[in-house]
Amino acid sequence: MAFDYEKYLRMEKIPHLWCPGCGIGVVLKSMLRAIDNLDWHRDDTAFVSGIGCTSRAPGYIDCNTLHTTHGRGLTFATGIKMAKPDKNVVIFSGDGDATAIGGNHFIHACRRNIDMTLIIVNNNIYGMTGGQHSPTTPIGFKASTTIYGNIDPSFDICLLARAAGATYVARSTVNNGRTLEKYIQKGLANKGFSVIEAVSNCHTQFGRKNNMSDPISSRKWIKDREIPLAKARSMKADDLKNMVITGEFISEESDMERWENYNRALEEYTKAYGDLIKKVKKKK
C-alpha cells in the first residue's frame, strides 16, 4: 500500500514553495516515513528549523513547528528539549544554516548529546538567497559569489559531527530515499544527538551555474560521486576529493577507534540533568 503522506502534512499549504525537482522533498518524505515507522505522535513532536529553503520544511508538517532565525534552530530546539525532555525534537537545517552561521551551535549540540535529531540538507549552496557559496561548495565550482571558481575548502559535515561528539552520524543522498529513511529512523531512535546529512540537489542555484541546470543532471552529478564508507576506507585520499562518502560514521555498531571515544558524552544530556535534579533534591 502506498504510504499516506497526507497523514503528516498540512495539505492546505501544498503546493510547497520549492522548485520542481528540488531534493528537499525527498528528504522530507523519508523523514515522514521514518517517524511513521517509529509511531511518533504528532502532538508529542516538534520540528524546528533556521532559515533557508530547507528550513521551510517544518511548515508543511502537521506537528508543533518552529521556523526560527538563520542558523539558530538548534538553540531554540535545545530550550524546547530541556524544558520537555520526554518530547521529540527534530531540526531541519541547510548546509549554510548548520555549518556557517550556525556552526558554533552545531558543534555544541553534538558535544552535549541532547536527544534530538538534526537533518542537514546539503545542497552545496545558499539556495534561498540566490546561490552564494557555502562551506560545502566544492573547490573549483561556481556560485554567485565565486564566479571565478570557489577557492574555499569545504567542511565534511559528518566528520565534524563525529569529532564534536554526536552519537549517531550518517550520510546519504537524495538518490537513495530508502537509505535516508533508514538512517533518519536510526537517528530518531538514538537516545542522544544524531546528525543525518542528506546530500541534495539545488539545480536552480547551484546546478545552473555549473552546467547541470535540471534536476536529473544535478542528481546524476551526486550519484556519480557516491562512494560507500567501507569502500572509501581502502581508497587513496586523492581519489576521494569532492566525493560523497555515504554510510554511518557513528552508530552503535560502528567500529570507532578507542582513542576517538575518549572524550565522548557518557550519557544523554537530559537524562544527566534529570539525575542532577534528583541528587540536588535528595540533598535538600
Binding site: 516538534a46 526560527t68 531554540f76 535545545t78 530550550g79 558554533n104
Partner: peptide, 13 residues
C-alpha cells in the same frame, strides 16, 4: 545568541 534562542524555545514549550 544561543542563550536567547534557548529561552524562547523553553517558553514555547
Amino acid at each position: 545568541i544561543a542563550a536567547m534562542g534557548s529561552i524562547i524555545g523553553a517558553s514555547l514549550a
